[in-house]
């Protein structure tokens, strides 16, 4: 059967005049974005009220490719910007799309406090273990002993377990997948988008150009093979038991899915009370 189409069915979500994107061959970001578009397609999200907020870095460029209200802010500050945006216009579905360095190093303080407040937003963190945009420096998720341009002899820092941080800070939904788990990732994105409160998805994604080739995974395909070999699905596990180590299992799945009143729900109640 021959398939003919003028446009791709997901083109409506993209600023097609900005394609091709800037991401490297073998980068996991295209896959993650594709999963997100499928999640939008299969959800009842009103695009007019969807806003994407990004920080700085490779993942930070996601905002610029989506054909919705999109905000490419300063390094680390996507979440507080998104907090203001969401509180000022509660009709919005606000999604923060950013990287591990942006959200957990320079922006780490904002992440934990937005989770604590249970601000109604979805945060998608693409974790590629390093700062890709600046050429591959160590970041807060770089595994111990991994080589980067600023850890040429191997990383001496313990990494964050992002899902543990999110759960401990109060996120109502926490899941982790790799860029290999496209269907499961898409399903998690749908769940997160349709859930009220601070929802968090970590996506482990390949960065062959600046991380992989220094760590024995020189192509995107090598990384995907590694994910396939090492990923273990453990839904409902305590995320504190899902640390990531070089050569160790990558524990993925949905770890947290709880109910808790959001910041704006509590505020609304308070406003009723003082009227």
């Amino acid at each position: 059967m021959e398939i003919e189409a003028e446009t791709h069915p997901l083109d409506k979500y993209l600023r097609t005049d900005r394609i091709p994107h800037i991401w490297c061959p073998g980068c996991g970001l295209g896959t993650v974005l594709n999963c997100f578009l499928h999640a939008l397609e299969e959800s009842d999200i009103d695009l007019k009220n969807l806003a994407i907020v990004s920080g700085i870095g490779c993942t930070g460029r996601v905002a610029g490719y989506l054909n919705v209200d999109s905000y490419h802010t300063t390094h680390g500050r996507a979440i507080p910007f998104a907090t203001g945006l969401k509180l000022a216009n509660p009709k919005l579905k606000v999604v923060v799309f950013s990287g591990d360095g942006d959200l957990f190093a320079i922006g780490g303080n904002h992440f934990i406090h937005a989770a604590r407040r249970n601000i109604d937003m979805t945060v998608i963190c693409v974790n590629n273990y390093n700062y890709g945009m600046t050429g591959g420096q160590l970041g807060p998720t770089t595994p111990l002993e991994a080589k980067t341009t600023t850890s040429p002899y191997g990383n001496v820092e313990h990494p964050f377990n992002l899902c543990h941080v999110a759960a401990a800070s109060g996120a109502v939904y926490v899941a982790r997948w790799t860029a290999l788990h496209v269907r499961r990732l898409k399903e998690s994105m749908k769940e997160a988008l349709n859930k009220k409160g601070f929802t968090f998805i970590e996506v482990i994604a390949s960065c062959p150009t600046t991380y992989g080739r220094r760590n024995k995974m020189p192509t995107g395909l090598d990384t995907m093979r590694y994910y396939k070999e090492k990923s273990v699905i453990k839904h409902g596990i305590d995320p504190s038991e899902a640390d990531i180590e070089i050569g160790g299992d990558i524990i993925v799945g949905k770890f947290v899915d709880i109910e808790k009143p959001t910041f704006d729900e509590i505020l609304k109640k308070l406003e009723e009370k003082i009227k």
Binding site: T73, P80, T83, K86, L87, H110, H113, I274
Partner: peptide, 28 residues
């Protein structure tokens, strides 16, 4: 809260400034 507005105490001044920019784009 008496006039239907929103007050939020942020975690620092970086966040405060980012939040008011976001709120302004949210129409307030």
């Amino acid at each position: 809260p008496q006039v239907g507005g929103i007050f939020i105490q942020m975690e620092d001044e970086l966040a405060s400034m980012a939040a008011i920019l976001g709120a302004s784009w949210g129409g307030m």
